[in-house]
Amino acid sequence: MNLISSEFRKLAYQRSTYGLILAAVALSVVSTAFSPFAIVQLSGEINFPLSDPNNVDGIYSKALSAYILVVVIGVRFMSGEFSHHTAVSTFLTTPKRHRVLAAKLAVAAVAGAAVNLFATLVGMGTGWFALQLYPNVAAPHAHIFWDFALSAALTGAVLCVVGVGVGALIRNQNLATTASLIWLFLVDRILAVIWVDGGKYLPSGLVTSLMNLTLSVSDKTTSLTINTSDYLPPLPAALILVGYAVVFSGLAWVSTLRRDIE
């Protein structure tokens, strides 16, 4: 318990943690607030009427965009130990490294779940206000509140743990942060759209699966189509997402327990 409190203090004392929480909320708010506007502006190119409850669910789903920044919290939480050499005092205080790592992973999971849930709820509230500005908007399905809240908590927990794993592997904090952002903002999202067969197993594809959406969107100019029926059902998606957490925890375990600490 002392180690968990100590690891929590490391996270809570850092101003950058609060900056990332604010950024996560802002990303969620902007994504949901901007989506109805963008859809109306693009109404000639895509068929996405807001009178369809499934499409309104899709607007609210943008509130889960914050997970990208939750990963960064995990990355900085771990890589900071090596970039600032605090791993020295950490492991002098607790030489049984597996205990430190277990505490760090537990704190990352709880913090990631809390931050992503908070950002998602704020984003969904923003989406509700934004949708009031448009006529003939359908009400969302009642189940999405719980589906999205659970998805946000699970996604936040898993991806913050993944961030810790990345931070253990790439010990340069800036490099680890940049690599994670490039992967999640660009590569992962592009793959999830253009290569659905493989992309549905990547984080953004799995997050889409978790939300249990029923969406089919076609771009008339590029013939690009997003159809959520191509994605996995929520339960297998959740299990694979947890698998990511297990794999990255294992990588963090192996790399942290064996290496000399500089």
Binding site: N2, R9, H85, T94
Partner: peptide, 22 residues
């Protein structure tokens, strides 16, 4: 090589150690 987080105050750095060591 020190081993203190530059973003934390001196007191915060020591409190992190205190907590872990009871």
């Amino acid at each position: 090589n020190g081993g203190f987080n530059p973003a934390l105050t001196g007191l915060q750095n020591l409190k992190v150690i205190c907590t872990a060591a009871s």
